[in-house]
Computed example of a mutant assay.
Amino acid sequence: MDAIDRKIVSLLRDNGRLSQETLAQRVHLSRPAVHERVKRLEEQGILRGYQALVDWEALGLPITAFIWVRTSGTQCHEVGQLLMRLGNQESIVEECHRVTGEWCMLLKVRVALPLALQALIDRIRAVPDVQATMTTLALSTLNARVSGDEEVLG
């Protein structure tokens, strides 16, 4: 993977809907050359898919929180899969990361209201093998992955 491939990955990470023509202009190659590079990046598993960026506030889930989870035993993968399914109309577990240190997992969650966060934490604590949680609310998010070259505080 060279610098041009890295630039293509970066551009597609920022906006997965960029046309190959636009990519070609931005990396200063022909469209067929960009097509071949994108195809190769997909075949190598570097580009695994394309996704939509969600406006969580417009979706009714404006609050972001991070929940540290400590488990007993070694069934972290199974517990993580259970945690990912705990969402409902007022909350969603967006990401679950296995981490090192004092805690076993870090969840990124989106909720509608503080009471929805409380209810989600209660459901998390009720999962077998979950010993403890610690929650941090995000006040704002610095998002450097937006179209264009500017960073946005949202």
Rank of each mutant, 00 (worst) to 15 (best):
I92Q: 07
L106D: 00
L153N: 06
V27P: 00
L115T: 15
A65V: 08
T71P: 01
A33D: 02
I121D: 12
E150Q: 10
A24T: 03
G87I: 05
R26T: 01
L115K: 13
I63W: 07
H77N: 06
I46L: 10
G87K: 01
M134S: 14
T74R: 12
R98K: 09
T22A: 14
L29F: 12
H97D: 12
S10E: 15
S19D: 04
Q20R: 11
E102C: 05
H28P: 00
T136V: 15
N88H: 12
Q75F: 08
D55P: 02
E36H: 12
L106P: 00
H97I: 08
R98H: 15
G60N: 09
V146D: 05
V69F: 09
G49A: 08
A119N: 11
V99A: 04
L115F: 12
I8M: 08
G73F: 14
A132D: 15
S10I: 03
T100V: 07
G16L: 08
N143K: 09
S19V: 04
Q81N: 11
E94G: 00
E36I: 02
G101D: 11
S140P: 00
L82Q: 14
E78C: 00
L82H: 09
Q25V: 03
V9Q: 07
L29N: 01
P128C: 06
N88C: 11
L41S: 06
Q25M: 11
A119V: 06
H97F: 15
I67C: 06
G148Y: 08
V146P: 00
V34M: 02
V54P: 00
W103G: 04
T141N: 10
G87D: 05
T135W: 09
Q81S: 09
G73K: 09
T133N: 03
L53I: 11
T71M: 11
E57G: 13
V109I: 08
A112W: 04
L115R: 12
L113N: 08
R145K: 09
N143F: 07
M105R: 01
V79N: 02
H97W: 15
H28R: 15
R31S: 06
R40I: 06
E151D: 10
